[in-house]
């Protein structure tokens, strides 16, 4: 293999990881939310608010760490609003989620209007000495940015939490039947608040990744429907975390191929490639609904239903 090919492949793999990480973060958070029986369609809004706030803070203070923290908090704050409306005021989850997305996009556009056209230096890669010098896989496995590493740690933590801890069992139980969980004396609303906050924080971090790692600038609407794709990914994964990894990297690959082929002048219309992730989502949704048995065994049965205990 020539040196050029090695470089090309390494770059491709790095590009795919950068494209896949936001999907993975946002979808992991939403998976936990949906496992608790709540459908939060506000992912796109929480992501973009995370993106703009982290950029503003990082640009103004020069501190990337502070930027990341504020991005996470901003996503969590928006999800807290969602939780208050849907869990305390018992509003419809679909309508509230859409409102969160619309509001998030609007707020982000307003807050970021003076920062359009500026740039920052992005979060640097962590090069692990010696290991990152291994040809081909060295940079891919040992030369990533900290958030990409964290996205994998997060997936393992979520798998461990959901299937190995009692708290995870309770969360899955609440998502399966909130009435039964309530009858057993579990605080359904409190558990859902916490799941929603976690989901918001993850979406905020996913947005942060876009501005502080992926692009290093802010542009209005830059989440480009990634939040919606993350929502579809949770269904694609049939609510199983390891499949979220699979899906995120699949979508990430398509996203990268689109940029790559444009750059290389491959004669495929870019509009077709841009639409590929969405076409894939539709195909996957159709495939899933055809195989109802598998979908049902894992689908949280009280997903999206309003819980109102009778006292």
């Amino acid at each position: 293999m020539s040196l050029d090919m090695v470089d090309l492949l390494t770059n491709a793999m790095l590009g795919i990881i950068v494209a896949a990480t936001p999907y993975m973060l946002a979808a992991t958070g939403e998976l936990v939310v949906e496992r608790s029986g709540v459908l939060n369609l506000g992912v796109e809004g929480m992501m973009i608010v995370g993106a703009v706030t982290s950029y503003i803070v990082a640009f103004s203070t020069g501190s990337l760490v502070l930027g990341v923290l504020v991005g996470i908090l901003a996503g969590a704050f928006l999800s807290l609003c969602f939780a208050f409306w849907t869990q305390t005021l018992l509003t419809n989850q679909v309508a509230t989620g859409l409102a969160v997305t619309l509001a998030g996009i609007g707020i982000a556009g307003l807050a970021g209007r003076n920062f359009v056209g500026t740039t920052i230096s992005p979060i640097p890669q962590l090069y692990i000495p010696y290991l990152s010098d291994i040809p081909l896989i060295g940079k891919v496995l040992f030369g990533l940015d900290p958030i990409a590493y964290f996205s994998f740690i997060l997936i393992f933590l979520v798998i461990w939490f959901l299937w190995k801890t009692r708290a995870g069992l309770i969360l899955r139980a609440v998502g399966d039947s909130h009435d039964s969980a309530h009858a057993l004396g579990y605080p359904v609303v409190k558990i859902r608040y916490m799941a929603i906050l976690f989901g918001g924080a993850c979406a905020g971090l996913a947005g942060t990744y876009l501005t502080l790692v992926h692009t290093a600038f802010w542009a209005p609407g830059m989440t480009a429907q990634r939040g919606w794709t993350a929502l579809a990914l949770v269904v694609f994964a049939s609510w199983l975390p390891w499949r979220v990894v699979l899906g995120a990297y699949l979508f990430g690959t398509v996203g990268y191929m689109q940029l790559f082929s444009q750059g290389m002048g491959v004669p495929i219309p870019s509009q077709f490639l841009s639409s590929l992730p969405y076409l894939m989502t539709i195909v996957v949704l159709v495939l899933i609904s055809r195989d109802q048995f598998r979908a049902k065994a894992n689908t949280p049965a009280s997903l999206g239903k309003v819980f109102k205990p009778d006292l």
């Binding site: 069992l169 309770i170 139980a173 399966d176 039947s177 039964s180 969980a181 057993l184 579990y186």
Partner: peptide, 16 residues
């Protein structure tokens, strides 16, 4: 019944 259909028998019991 106040059971969780997606969980196993053992998990259902553990929850109570």
């Amino acid at each position: 019944f106040s059971l969780f259909e997606a969980l196993t028998v053992g998990e259902n019991v553990a929850l109570s």
